[in-house]
């Protein structure tokens, strides 16, 4: 499978949010306006790419040779959590502007199941190092795309007359369902 197919598959066809249902919490929580959606999306993409490299090394150089596959979940989540911490500290020191933009989202990323999910999937598919990184990039950008689309629609929806019980999360889920239906159209794309 070529790198391009992996990227396209993670980005559109098997979009992490709309098709695989990973990362729903931030998708619902941080999609109220487009700016924070982009911030959250890019911060997540960044952590995903870094975590892709880290988890690949751990899996193939520590867990597999030592015969400890059962520590996968434990070690991956700890690595992701510490990655997020490192990224936070690094941004704080080097780029205060970026830190102000992304900072509030970073702690939320640890519990984003899209990151742990994609790391485990990468191992299951026995991707090579480069493939894993590209997979992470595609997954992160797919997450960003879904978040942006959702935020754009929700901004417009503020002015719509929605039946009272549906307001808030209810209508957001129905919109997500329609978006997911639209993404179903990518299914035959190769």
């Amino acid at each position: 499978m070529s790198l391009f197919t992996i990227l396209l598959s993670a980005l559109l066809v098997n979009n992490f949010v709309l098709v695989r249902f990973l990362g729903i919490c931030p998708f619902m929580g941080v999609s109220k306006d487009v700016d924070s959606a982009i911030g959250m999306g890019l911060a997540t993409t960044f952590v995903m790419v870094v975590a892709a490299a880290a988890t690949w090394l751990i899996q193939w150089f520590i867990l597999e040779p030592l015969g400890l596959p059962f520590l996968q979940t434990l070690s991956f989540i700890l690595v992701i959590a510490s990655m997020v911490q490192l990224v936070e500290m690094f941004l704080h020191k080097t780029s205060p502007g970026l830190y102000r933009a992304m900072g509030i989202f970073l702690p939320l990323i640890t519990t984003n199941c899209a990151i742990l999910g994609f790391a485990i999937m990468g191992v299951q598919n026995s991707y090579s190092f480069i493939e894993t990184v590209i997979f992470g990039l595609g997954a992160g950008l797919g997450f960003t795309l879904a978040l942006m689309l959702m935020a754009g629609i929700r901004e417009e929806m503020q002015f719509a007359d929605i039946p009272k019980p549906l307001r808030g999360v209810g209508i957001a889920f129905i919109v997500a369902g329609l978006l997911s239906l639209a993404f179903g159209g990518f299914a035959g794309l190769v």
Binding site: L166, G170, F173, L181, G184
Partner: peptide, 17 residues
């Protein structure tokens, strides 16, 4: 399929409300 999950949950939430 995925869209069914989203829409059903949205409607259930409205019912709970």
């Amino acid at each position: 399929l995925p869209p069914g999950a989203f829409i059903t949950l949205g409607l259930l939430m409205a019912m709970m409300n």
